[in-house]
Computed example of a mutant assay.
Amino acid sequence: MILRNSALRQGRQVFTASCKASQSAPTGLRALSTDRLSPLPTAYADPSTLTTSSPQVAAAAAAATAVSNPRVLSAVAQATSSSPKKGPKRGKTASVSNRVANQFRRSEAIKDSIGDLGSTVEHRFRPSSLLQDPPRPEDVTLELLMSAQCHMGHHASLWNPANQRYIYGVRSGIHIISLEEIAASLRRAAKVVEQTAYLGGLILFVGNRKGQMEVVSRAAELAGACHLFSKWVPGTITNRDQILGKEQLKIVNEKDETLTGFEKHLLERRPMMPQLVVVLNPLENFTLLNECAQENIPTIGLVDTNGDPTKVTYVIPGNDDSIRSVSVIAGVLGRAGESGQKRRLADAAKGICTWRKPAELRGAAKEEATEKEDSHISAVMEQIRL
């Protein structure tokens, strides 16, 4: 307190001396007494409703009107230091409500005046629609692929020269994939998936990147196939007797109805292998691709500009980093598999079987028929003896 009073007194003496030297003391006093900061508007009160009832504002006003009196300055400083610090009081909210109402009326008037301008959006994009209702192969357009960012590749310095025929150009250092190549490759892969499903083949969808679990599951659900969204276990195909030996098998007819009487054959049968593998991220699943190549299993891969297209059988050039791009590609392939399954079941209802029995299964069926015939003959012979 003593230091503050001495500082104020010293400041007053310096200010008075400078005013006498320049003979402009009244002007300086007038400027000091009239230079006040106006309160800022808040969200609760209008600037016109704010008052100077705050102790800090009153102390500042008293200090401005009594600069020449050191006793008053010390008293004001003491009152300021001893007074509790409080924020500005909230004013009435009526003015704020009126201002908001006026702004709302103005915005409505502007909407009425320009309501006929602009375009009307008939179909709004919903991110979940790519999973709930994926597009069909015949619905694939260049606009759909561009909106899904399927044409965005990687940086030009990361490219694989084997992808040169799929690249349209470079923009801002990023490779742009040709939309025509994407559409043509996607339609060809969709035909492969549809025909495999029509012939009763087992299809496997693989996508184990972050965010691809729902995409892979939905595509496999549509196509009636299997899916994998976790890490691939090495040797699942080449060493399937040890890894998949305990998995359950069943034998079905052309209508997908379970057949009984083959329990003995199922105990001796090896685990099944997929007839087609769809990989959405080939870079992380190179082990799976190598195993498929060893067993002559065809593969479909979504290959980006930094990938190797020679690792898969049917290449779909496109962006494998965007969830929206992957959803479009997987959704189209899932719809193709769904179409193939519907065709197969429709032909099965007419008595047409679109797939052939495996050789070992035909042998098991013949053995079972022979056993039934022998048992029937033995039963007849027993009746004759009796």
Rank of each mutant, 00 (worst) to 15 (best):
114 I>D: 00
139 D>L: 13
115 G>F: 01
185 S>K: 13
146 M>W: 02
113 S>E: 10
157 S>Q: 09
204 L>E: 04
176 I>Y: 03
179 L>N: 09
206 V>G: 01
131 L>E: 02
197 A>Q: 14
166 Y>F: 15
204 L>I: 02
123 H>M: 03
126 R>M: 08
190 A>C: 10
174 I>P: 00
176 I>W: 02
200 G>E: 02
135 P>W: 04
185 S>D: 12
208 N>W: 09
149 Q>F: 14
115 G>A: 06
206 V>N: 01
178 S>M: 08
207 G>D: 04
127 P>N: 03
179 L>K: 12
137 P>E: 04
134 P>S: 05
177 I>T: 09
124 R>W: 01
136 R>E: 10
129 S>G: 00
117 L>K: 09
128 S>F: 11
150 C>D: 04
173 G>A: 05
200 G>T: 06
157 S>F: 06
118 G>V: 03
198 Y>I: 01
113 S>T: 10
169 G>F: 10
132 Q>G: 04
157 S>W: 06
191 K>W: 08
204 L>V: 02
166 Y>S: 13
155 H>W: 04
170 V>T: 12
199 L>H: 14
151 H>S: 11
169 G>T: 09
197 A>M: 13
190 A>M: 12
140 V>Q: 07
121 V>S: 01
187 R>A: 10
141 T>M: 10
195 Q>N: 14
172 S>W: 07
145 L>D: 02
163 N>Q: 10
206 V>D: 00
164 Q>D: 04
122 E>M: 04
119 S>V: 10
135 P>M: 05
137 P>A: 08
161 P>D: 02
143 E>T: 14
143 E>M: 12
136 R>Q: 13
153 G>D: 07
197 A>C: 15
203 I>W: 00
208 N>A: 14
116 D>E: 11
187 R>M: 13
193 V>R: 07
170 V>I: 15
165 R>C: 03
155 H>Q: 09
208 N>P: 00
193 V>P: 01
177 I>F: 05
123 H>W: 01
150 C>S: 14
125 F>D: 01
119 S>F: 06
176 I>F: 04
163 N>L: 09
175 H>A: 13
113 S>Y: 12
203 I>Y: 01
139 D>E: 15
131 L>G: 04
114 I>N: 01
144 L>H: 13
150 C>W: 00
167 I>Q: 03
137 P>Y: 08
159 W>L: 06
132 Q>N: 08
198 Y>A: 05
116 D>M: 03
112 D>N: 13
181 E>I: 06
160 N>R: 06
125 F>V: 10
158 L>R: 06
189 A>N: 09
128 S>D: 06
112 D>S: 14
146 M>V: 12
163 N>M: 15
154 H>G: 04
193 V>H: 08
144 L>I: 12
131 L>S: 05
191 K>S: 15
135 P>N: 08
188 R>K: 15
141 T>F: 09
120 T>E: 08
115 G>T: 09
164 Q>E: 06
191 K>R: 15
113 S>M: 10
148 A>E: 07
174 I>K: 05
152 M>H: 10
134 P>G: 04
169 G>P: 00
141 T>P: 00
158 L>S: 07
169 G>C: 07
181 E>K: 15
140 V>R: 08
199 L>E: 13
141 T>L: 11
191 K>C: 12
